[in-house]
Nucleic acid binder design. Sequence first.
DNA 1: TCTGGGGTCCTAGGACCC
DNA 2: TCTGGGGTCCTAGGACCC
Length: 412
Amino acid sequence: MQNRIIFHIDVNSAYLSWEAVYRLQHGEKIDLRKIPSVVGGDERKRHGIVLAKSIPAKEYGIVTGESLYSARQKCPNLTIVPPNYERYLKASNSMLSLLNEYSPLIQRFSIDEVFMDCSHLEDNFLKIAYEIKERIKKELGFTVNIGISTNKLLAKMASDFKKPDKVHTLFPEEIEEKMWPLPVGKLFMIGVKTQKKLNNRGIYTIGQLAKLDREYIYAWLKKPGLLIWKYANGIENSEVKNTSYAVKSIGNSTTTSYDVDNKKEAYMFLLAISEMVGMRARDLNLSGRVVSVSLKDNDFFSYSHQKKLNTATNSTKTIYETSKKLFNEMWNKKPIRRFNITLSELSSNEFCQLSLLEDYDEKEEKLNRAIDKIRYKYGYNSIIRSCFLHSGIKPVIGGVMEEEYPMMSSII
DNA sequence: TCTGGGGTCCTAGGACCC
DNA sequence: TCTGGGGTCCTAGGACCC
């Protein structure tokens, strides 16, 4: 446990770099990384936000998550390219297999971040870190930052130092010099809300937070307070989790391209999302006991209701019927901008479906499975419910694999 | 043509029980 | 006769991450 060496590998402007590499490989002359550019969603679908930015775009003050409209105000000749998640997943996978050559203990933290336990490298860790960085650049075409320390938190903080294409260490003895002078908002798990609270009490740097009295911060900000206080002091000892650990919830959502103001259409969106949530749960052999519906109105106000069922389910029908009930008890008639359905309190199917379940419908289960199979093979739109015909609403909503399949062979 | 989608964890209040 | 105090479950909402 002591003297671990942990790497945190972070792809620089991931989506944008991957997009740039792909385009260069396919004959494009301009490197998106060298001009003010962003990867952004489709504004016509009201998905118009910045997903990733180039360093020149960053110099205009453009930040991830802001609207493309506002990004364009900051930089009128901004180049905007649409995302392609399948492409990014491939790039991410290539990086993972390269990293696998260096350590068997790898945790994929997100599509563009990886933790690696490199304790076995002993004194060679720095040399290997540079080797990994250079190999990714040469063989895969994009750059990464690598942060190195004795735990995941410090490694992650280190990889966030100067970018791009850098290796940084942040060992416990370097905390005071390298981490404590940073603004408190830079610390992992301190967002805008907490930063404001801290600033209001005169705490501006990570060092100031670190030196607070432990009981004081706990009494004030409870568990999250204790967590950030520990982080500020470099205290964190979680394992690099190699195996894919249990998923806790399965949810899908969509921002509609127009405000929805009637029940009939709202139901269709709920059904299309239920299809995806159910399909994903069945695919993972999981069932959930809690169904939650969350709505966002056209003033961006979000509210939610949830229902705990008597027995866990992964049936599209049950998820849909429950969502409808929840929708009816909560909707205040304000036009809706976004729908979300989440299935949680998940358990493995073996546990819940062995017992006698009053609501368990074997015929429906078989039908769902058969439809899933067809959809995985021929695309989400290969088999659809008739109510979606000519509706202009996608029959299955959610997920990152947004490939549009033109074929439409069957109607349910 | 202004503001996505996928998650995790925590808190506070009310119901209910003893 | 003026109203305790735990514990658990459920729900709504909020904070954070990429």
